[in-house]
């Protein structure tokens, strides 16, 4: 995590000093997206032989992602820059009765680092429309946490972690409106991933029942994180140009 903090710090504190350059823009926003995650959905689903009639109650739903970016105009109608984003989603298989509860949670996070490129295609009433393409890599982190509670006699926890790296690109369109150097940007895009296999990094088991360790998950299966899906984004930024307005 420290290296991510370092990287983001570079973005936050380094880019403003570069704002002396002409036509520099910086901003941040949020996206609402869907995620394919089919492999993880299969991974989460309890097998028919599982000793509890557990059920998937949360299955990698759409979620809000966050990003920051900085770009500059290479020519008046085209800008390029860097965008760093964060997406997360998860799933849960669960069972509970009066004797206790079982949850098997998967939390997956992806930090994307990509170049962001926009070409202005149209402008009317101070609203500019762009066609864009982001391309880069996603650093995925996944945590699997199995928790069994049968109070008061038993508490068992099993945690596993894994990581992978995806290559992504996201074509889309956006529109922006400037107000005294600040601007608001709305965009629609679709993200494609070329996913790499997860690599398990560690496992922590705290169990006092051997049966509780009979997890449904097959950790040796090739599992991939796929963030593919539509993104609806809204961002705010600041244009460091000479007159404070976005060009």
């Amino acid at each position: 995590m420290k290296k991510y903090v370092f990287r983001i710090s570079i973005i936050f504190f380094g880019i403003p000093f570069a704002a002396h350059a002409q036509n520099l823009q910086m901003g941040g926003g949020a996206t609402f997206g869907t995620f394919k995650m089919q492999a993880l959905k299969d991974f989460l689903k309890p097998s028919s032989g599982f000793y509890l009639p557990a059920k998937v109650v949360d299955n990698f739903p759409s979620n809000i992602g966050y990003n920051i970016w900085a770009s500059m105009n290479v020519i008046p109608s085209f800008s390029t820059g860097l965008i760093v984003g964060l997406n997360s989603t998860g799933g849960r298989a669960a069972y509970s009765d009066y004797t206790g509860s079982y949850t098997n949670d998967i939390l997956v996070r992806g930090i994307s680092v990509a170049s962001t490129n926009r070409y202005q295609v149209y402008e009317t009433h101070h609203v500019k429309f762009f066609a864009g393409l982001d391309a880069g890599v996603i650093f995925n982190r996944m945590e699997v946490k199995t928790n069994i509670v049968a109070e008061p006699a038993f508490v068992g926890t099993l945690e596993r972690k894994a990581k992978s790296t995806n290559v992504m690109f996201s074509p889309g369109i956006s529109a922006s409106r400037s107000f005294h150097g600040f601007f608001v940007n709305a965009k629609v895009l679709y993200e494609f991933n070329s996913a790499g296999d997860l690599q398990w990094t560690n496992s922590v088991e705290i169990m006092n029942s051997t049966k509780a360790g009979e997890t449904v998950m097959n950790v040796n299966a090739p599992v991939t994180v796929r963030w593919d899906g539509i993104r609806l984004g809204l961002a705010v930024g600041y244009n460091f140009n000479r007159d404070g307005d976005e060009k």
């Binding site: 936050f12 949020a30 109650v57 949360d58 964060l86 849960r92 009765d97 009066y98 939390l107 705010v236």
Partner: peptide, 29 residues
């Protein structure tokens, strides 16, 4: 000042806004 507020909100979202799985399946045995 506005820039600082904006940057802080973005940073907070980056580090606090991760998804947490939720839900329960209670069987009335």
């Amino acid at each position: 000042s506005l820039f600082k507020i904006l940057a802080s909100v973005i940073a907070l979202l980056l580090f606090q806004g991760c998804y947490e799985p939720k839900g329960n399946f209670f069987v009335p045995v």
